[in-house]
Simulated assay, not measured.
Amino acid sequence: MEKYALITGASGGIGRSIAQKLASEGYSLYLHYHTNEKAVTELMAELDSFEIELIPIQADLSSKDGYLHLANNIFSLDAIVLNSGSSVYGLVTEMEEHTVQQMVQLHVTTPFLISKMLLPKLMNKKQAAIVAITSIWGQTGASYEVLYSMVKGAQNAYVKALSKELAPTGIRVNAIAPGAISTPMMEDFSPEDLLNLQAEIPMGRMGTPGEIAETAAFLLSDKASYMTGQILGVNGGWYT
């Protein structure tokens, strides 16, 4: 039976890797993006050899109504990967109100409303799963990234609560909290900063998007059939 998964933020480094992994496992994919249409077009070309359906969906999930356009273009559904996100750096006293509102909308309000609208489709399936890509900072917090830490912590709490509510339906809800991953989000760091960062990580290196993708595929699979409400840290032993 054909399986369908929605990946928000499919144009980013982690989203692309998750799409590649799920395509290799036979999932047809709804590939959400905001502005990077080129990346999604290239991704679809890469996945063309798989006998799956690929459905690109453009939506600004940091806007109040962005989730509606996304959810209204989803039909059959077996899995959701909530991966959209952006980071913001600065002291609390430097944060503009509109930045706070956009971050809360993108990371908290929109994922809640997407799930709310799409849950009936998941409940039509005997087995379904939701995986949220959160952050190590949602677990331990980071100075100069207080806003980002706050919204990622909210995602972790959401996963734990939603998993309990949906457990009787057979829908599992888990999260992955990545540490430092080699994605474009790390491009703001200087080479010296990256070396210092890696020195703090017990495994001595940053993670790869592929390692996050493997974890996501595991959580969506029957191999994780008795796992729900878990926040899996994939961080090389950093801040455990």
Rank of each mutant, 00 (worst) to 15 (best):
H98I: 03
K116G: 11
V92S: 00
S84Y: 04
G90R: 00
A45G: 07
Y30F: 12
D188A: 13
V151F: 00
S62P: 08
L119D: 12
I130H: 10
I80Q: 00
H34T: 06
S62T: 12
E53L: 04
I171G: 00
Q101L: 01
Q102V: 14
Y158N: 02
A19G: 01
Y67P: 07
T240Y: 02
I18G: 04
Q20F: 02
S225C: 13
H98V: 05
N174S: 00
A175V: 07
A167T: 04
V146E: 08
E200A: 13
F218Y: 15
T35W: 05
H32E: 07
Q127D: 11
Y144L: 08
I14T: 01
G66E: 01
S63K: 10
G66Q: 03
I212L: 05
H98W: 02
S63D: 12
H107K: 11
Y148H: 14
A177S: 15
Q101S: 09
A23W: 14
S84C: 03
A175K: 03
K223Q: 15
M117N: 14
F189C: 09
G204N: 03
V92D: 02
F189S: 14
S49I: 07
E37R: 14
G179P: 00
Q101T: 13
T215V: 07
V173F: 06
S163V: 04
M1H: 10
A5P: 13
L91V: 01
A19F: 14
G90Y: 11
K223T: 01
L91D: 06
A39S: 15
Y67R: 02
H69Q: 00
T41H: 10
M44G: 02
G90I: 11
M117W: 02
A128F: 12
M186K: 11
P168H: 04
S17L: 00
I14Q: 03
A23D: 06
K38I: 14
G210F: 07
L47C: 09
D188M: 15
L194N: 10
G204R: 11
L70Q: 02
A180N: 09
T183V: 13
P56N: 06
K21H: 11
E96K: 04
T208S: 11
I212D: 09
A217T: 13
P184F: 00
F50V: 02
M186F: 12
M185C: 07
V131N: 05
S149G: 13
A45E: 11
A199H: 15
V104D: 09
E25S: 09
S84H: 14
A23P: 04
L118R: 05
M44N: 00
I130V: 14
G66S: 07
G207D: 05
P191S: 01
T35E: 06
A157Y: 07
K164T: 13
G12E: 07
P56K: 05
F189I: 09
R172P: 09
L220S: 11
N72H: 12
G237D: 03
D78M: 09
G26A: 00
